[in-house]
Structures are given as C-alpha cells and as structure tokens.
C-alpha cells in the first residue's frame, strides 16, 4: 500500500500533538528535573547528578518490588494465556448464545478497577465472603489479610477473573477468521482434534495471541488499584508491586528524587516493551 506523501497532514495531527505534549512531555520533564536534583525543603534545589539513579539501582527495596512484579506478571501470563485459549476454543461460534457469552465475558473488563478490588476483598473475607466462608467451612485455613501466600493467591485469582476474558475474546476474534474450508479439509484428512488445533487454529491465532501476551504483560506490569484495594500491598510488603511502591515513595514519603529516578527507569522499560509491541502490531498490518 503506497500512501501519498503529504507534509500538510501535520496540520491534522497538530491538535493531538499539542494535547498529548501537554499531558505527557510537560509532566515527564518535571520528573527528569527531580531525578537529578536534591532539596532540603522550601524551593531550594541542588544538583545531584546521577546519585538518585545509583541509589535506585542498588536499592534492595526496589529490587524486591521488581522481583515480585516479574513473578506476578509471569504467573499471570502462565495462567491467563492457556486458559483464555481454552475458553475461546469452547465458545459457541454464532447465534444468540455466542452473543450472550460475549456480553457476560466482557462484563468484568468494564468494572472500575477499585470496584474489582472491592468485589474480591468482600468475596474473600472469611466472615462475610462466599469464597472465604466456604473455604473455612471446608477446613482450609485461608486469610488474605495475614498470610502472604493467601494474599498472593487472592490477587492472582482476581487478575485471572478480571482479564482472562480479554485473552479469550482476542483469540475468539482470531478463530472467527478461519474459513470453514480449512476444517473440512482437516476432516477429509481425518486429522485429530489436537492436530486441528496445532496446525490450523494455533497458527491462525498467532497474531492475536502476540497482542494478548503483550497487552497482558504491560497491564499487569503496571497494576496498581486492584491489589492496593484488596491488600494495600501487604501483609508486610508481600504484594507491593512496582506501581504501589512508586506511589508510596512519591506521595507517601515525598522522596521526590529517588521516586523520579525510579519513574524514569520504569518508563524506559515500558518504552522498550512498547517498541516490541509496535513492531508486532504494524507487521501484522502489512501481512494482511
């Protein structure tokens, strides 16, 4: 596809450019500014060079948060991607029942994030929550407030509840694009269910799966509201992920310098992953 070159198109992009520059570049410059300076109160700032960056890179606290974050994202992907594919394969293909499934599955995606947290906070409570109460009746000790493992399980199950449908919906969209002729050919060849999946469905889902993996990775990597509402980052620091730690540092303790340096490093990681994402997205387009 050859698009005509026309630099006047810049005029059409200008409003977006100004708006996003105002809400992205300006705040980002503030962050850069803080990351290289130190203050002893008032409005007096001193040049601090790269000290904050060194401090952040060598900080045990941030390393621990990063470790938890990577573990969390890895667990999320390991559960949600296979489960999402599995659900998509079992979804009805068309008709009112398919629409019904689509609507119910999308429902958790549209709930405000703190309400998602509230729902699971209530659901898991041992005194008034269905899940916590049932587990206690079954004789399983479960308390997400005091026990780190239980808190982790709750946060992971919550995320699976919240976002698996996204993976399933994307895969479903990929499956819908497979012509019936492929299945007919497979039937003539007497291909097994596994072979149909491995050689017809999986290759056709490859594109959407990549998008699903990247989206889930990015969003789980920045997760803040849901675990914050359920566990507040605890017990101790057990569920303090990167964003929660960052907000604690910047707003709670007002350690602007380290928080800013931390932000910039965080942002660079995101930038790197965005680049992979962009390459995938635009390559898909050229293929089709």
């Amino acid at each position: 596809m050859d698009k005509p070159v026309n630099n006047r198109a810049w005029l059409l992009v200008l409003p977006v450019l100004l708006l996003v520059a105002f809400s992205a570049i300006l705040p980002l410059m503030t962050v850069v500014n803080y990351s290289v300076q130190d203050t002893f109160g008032g409005n007096q700032f001193f040049w601090a060079g790269l000290d904050w960056f060194e401090e952040v890179i060598h900080s045990d606290r941030i390393r621990a948060a990063l470790g938890r974050q990577i573990l969390f994202s890895a667990i999320i992907l390991a559960i949600e991607i296979p489960l999402g594919i599995f659900v998509a394969l079992n979804m009805p293909k068309k008709g009112i029942w398919a629409s019904f499934c689509l609507v119910l599955m999308a429902l958790p995606l549209l709930i405000p994030w703190n309400v998602v947290g509230t729902i699971w906070q209530v659901f898991g409570r041992v005194d008034i929550g269905l899940l916590g109460f049932t587990l206690r009746k079954l004789g399983i000790s479960y308390n997400y407030v005091n026990d780190a493992i239980d808190a982790w399980i709750t946060v992971v199950v919550m995320d699976v509840w919240h976002w698996t449908s996204l993976v399933a919906l994307l895969c479903y969209a990929g499956l819908q694009s497979i012509p019936d002729a492929y299945y007919q050919a497979a039937r003539i060849d007497q291909a097994s269910r596994w072979k149909v999946f491995r050689y017809i469905e999986l290759p056709k889902m490859q594109g959407v799966l990549l998008i699903a993996v990247l989206l889930r990775f990015m969003d789980s990597f920045m997760i803040y509201t849901e675990p914050f509402v359920v566990t507040g980052g605890g017990p101790g620091n057990a569920t303090t992920f990167l964003s929660i730690d960052l907000v604690k540092m910047a707003v709670g303790q007002f350690d602007l310098g380290p928080a800013a340096a931390f932000s910039l490093i965080y942002f660079l990681v995101i930038l790197l992953i965005s680049f992979v994402f962009y390459t995938v997205m635009t390559r898909e387009k050229e293929d089709s």
């Binding site: 962050v31 910047a250 992953i273 994402f277």
Partner: peptide, 16 residues
C-alpha cells in the same frame, strides 16, 4: 502515541 497508552499512571500521578 502508543508509549503514552502504555505509560504507567503511577509515574504521572505526582507531576500531574
């Protein structure tokens, strides 16, 4: 533009 969609809100909270 894409990087802004992906930016963690936590980074922008204080500057905003």
């Amino acid at each position: 533009l894409l990087t802004n969609r992906m930016a963690p809100a936590a980074v922008f909270a204080l500057p905003f």
